[in-house]
Simulated scan of single mutants.
Amino acid sequence: MKKLILLLSLVTVTTTTVVSAQDLKEKNVPATVKAAFMKKYPDAKKVSWEMEKGNYEANWGGKSGEDNSAVFTPSANFVEIVVAMKINELPASIAPYIAKNYKGMKMLEAGKVTDAAGKHMFEVEIKGKDLIFDEKGVFIKED
C-alpha cells in the first residue's frame, strides 16, 4: 500500500511538472476571464491562451504572437502583464549579473513586467528559467 501511494505521488508530481504551462483552446477559458481580459485590453487581436501555475495567460501581438502576455487568476483578477522588449534595452546591471551568476547562459528573451499594483520589474528568460529583476535591474528571484 505504501509503495502504491508513493508511486501515485511520484506520477502526480511528474505530471504536474510537465504540464505547468499548457496551451488552451479559447473555449476552455472561463467567460469571466475572457471578459476581464477584453475589458483591460480591448485592442488585443489573435489571442492565444495557456494555463500557467494555475492562472490563465493570454498572449498576443508581434510576429510570434507573444509580444504581450497578460495573466489572470481563475476568478478573473488581473495579476500582471509582460511586454516583450529587446535584450539590449534592459538595465545595464542585468547582463553582468547573469554573466557572473549563470555562467555560459545566454539571455533568450526579455520583458517589462507590470503587476496589478503598478509595480515594474524585468523578466529575463535563460535556458529553462525566468529571472526577475526590480525596476533598477537588481536581482529579485529565479522563477
Rank of each mutant, 00 (worst) to 15 (best):
I5K: 11
A117M: 15
G111S: 14
T32N: 00
M51P: 00
I81Q: 08
A92D: 07
M85F: 06
G62T: 01
F78K: 04
K112L: 14
V79Q: 05
V47W: 08
V13M: 01
A21Y: 12
K39C: 02
S69I: 13
I5T: 08
I87Y: 09
N55T: 08
K34G: 14
G65S: 01
L90Q: 01
V11R: 08
K63D: 03
I81L: 04
S9P: 03
N77T: 14
G61K: 09
M51F: 05
Y102M: 13
I98E: 07
G62C: 01
G65E: 02
T32P: 02
M105F: 11
D134Y: 10
F78I: 08
E80S: 14
T12P: 08
L4N: 04
M107A: 13
M107E: 05
K119C: 03
F122K: 14
F122T: 01
K40P: 00
M121R: 06
D23F: 15
S48P: 00
P74F: 02
E66S: 15
E135C: 08
S93T: 05
I140S: 11
Y97F: 06
M38L: 15
K40R: 02
V138Q: 13
L108K: 07
L7T: 15
W60D: 03
K39W: 05
E66L: 06
I5P: 07
I81N: 04
E57S: 06
F37A: 08
A117G: 15
G54I: 02
M121T: 10
T12G: 03
S93Y: 10
T14C: 09
F78M: 12
K127R: 15
K106S: 08
D130Y: 01
I81P: 01
V113L: 11
L4Q: 11
T15K: 03
L90E: 06
K63S: 00
M107S: 05
K40G: 00
N101G: 10
G61I: 01
I94P: 05
A84C: 05
V47D: 06
K63N: 12
G111M: 12
F133V: 00
K53E: 11
E109N: 11
V124W: 09
I140M: 09
K3D: 12
K34H: 03
E89I: 10
G54C: 07
